[in-house]
Nucleic acid binder design. Structure first.
Lengths: 121, 121
DNA sequence: CTGTATCCGGTCTGATACTG
DNA sequence: CAGTATCAGACCGGATACAG
């Protein structure tokens, strides 16, 4: 682990980014919302695209510490763990959906092209 | 400069993050929307919080290459440059505002606390 | 199954000096 | 004023090995 040494901003944006800034965090939140709650299942879900178990664990922990996820542990061998969305976690879903939709809609337009300029400024 | 070597995801989220993932990009977009159009003015605007001129220049260039900003150059000495939002750039404003508002609203709730758990899952 | 520790390399940012 | 080059250091993720 490491400690952050570069000071963070204190605007709403950076707070939001602290929650959803990680590479897989939004995806993880969506998984859990879709009833894929166990780390191994989440891992299997995105293994095709290359998320390692370590990163998933790290993100889950961060999201738990931020109060986005709630961790439920079932004692026993082998261990069983499930993650649930908290109320705050649920409140991220509309934004995640909006971001995803924006990306899909605008993807084709993300090109340098003077014709896209807005003259009104 | 460097070339990206880690494969990117192709979902809407990562496309969105390519546009607003930088530390200062959302702020820069808001500045330009508020008629703070010249690099030096933008720099002055956020100098208190530590954005270096180099990072601002880099972000401006990236946003221009993505078609979020349009760059207008006035010849002469000293040089004068102004950036304007394109239509795609304008379309990010509602999301930026939503992200900022979410951060401000939820900031106090971002704490590990079982009471926040949603039992329904 | 879940989570931690360690290493390593890619990525990003801050600082400074410099060109036009 | 606008932008570039370079360096150093912080950050982040992939891989592996290992412990509970």
């Amino acid at each position: 682990m490491y400690e952050k040494k570069i000071p963070e901003l204190h605007c709403g944006i950076s707070i939001f980014m602290k929650v959803l800034g990680g590479k897989w965090k939004a995806w993880i939140i969506e998984c859990i919302h879709d009833d894929i709650r166990r780390p191994s299942d989440i891992h299997r879900e995105m293994e095709v695209d290359g998320a390692s178990m370590r990163v998933i664990t790290m993100h889950l922990k961060e999201l738990e510490d931020l109060g986005i996820l709630y961790k439920k542990v079932y004692a026993g061998i082998p261990l069983k763990v499930e993650y649930y969305l908290t109320e705050v976690g649920l409140s991220t879903l509309p934004l995640i959906k909006a971001m995803d939709q924006w990306g899909k809609e605008k993807q084709a337009l993300l090109v340098k092209d003077e014709r896209n300029a807005v003259l009104a400024g």
